[in-house]
Write a protein that binds this DNA or RNA. Sequence first.
DNA 1: CCCTGATTCGC
DNA 2: GCGAATCAGG
Length: 207
Amino acid sequence: MSWTDERVEILKTMWGEGKSASQIAKELGGVTRNAVIGKVHRLGLSNRNGGGGSTAAKAAEPAKKDSAQAAAKPAKAAEKPRPAPEPANTPKTDAARPAEAAPAAASAPEPTPLRRTIVPAGQPLPPQPSANEISPEALASVREVEKKAKKLSLMELTERTCKWPIGDPATEEFWFCGLPVQAGKPYCEAHVGVAFQPMSSRRDRRR
DNA sequence: CCCTGATTCGC
DNA sequence: GCGAATCAGG
C-alpha cells in the first residue's frame, strides 16, 4: 500500500479528529500504526491538541548517548489548514472545557456500541457537541458492565483488572468488576467514566 | 499486558 | 519517503 492522496487525506482527517494511529491504520488497512505515525510526522502534523488519553509530547528528552541532534525542534508551529471550526458556540457557563471528554468518548468504539458519531470523511469534526455530564450512557454502561463483570474476589485482582466493587461487602453479594482496565487506571472504561466525573453534573443529587 | 505517540535508521 | 524496531510513557 502506498500513500495516495486519498489515503493521506483520510489520515489527515482522522488524525485531526483525534483518532489514534492504530485506529487510522486499521481504517486504512495495509499499514501499521507505525506507518501511520511515521507518515504523520513526515507530514509535519504531529502535535494535535488533546491531552486526555494522549501520551504524546513526552519524549522531548533525547538523552542519547551520542550528540546526534542536540536541539530538536525549537519552532515547529506549522499552520494548519483547519480554521477554528467553532462558529457560534455560546456556552453560558463555559468554564474552560478543553477536550478532556473527547478522547474518552472516542477511545472505546469497539466494545461499547455507544454513540458512534461517524463523521463522513471530508470535513473535520467541528465542535465536540457532546458535553459530558455524567451522561446516562455512562450509567447505563456501568449497569451493563456489572452484568458482564467477572466477579473477581479481592485475591484475584491483578494490576489490569477493574477494581470497582460491586455489591455489599457485608454480604456474599460482593465482588470486583474484574474487567480489563484501560490504561494505567484502576478501573475499566465504564467505571473510569463514573469514577472520574468532570466535576460538573452530579451537582444536585436531587433525591 | 493492554495501549498511546515519538524517534531512529536501514532501506 | 517509508516503516519496523525501538523508546518512553499511561
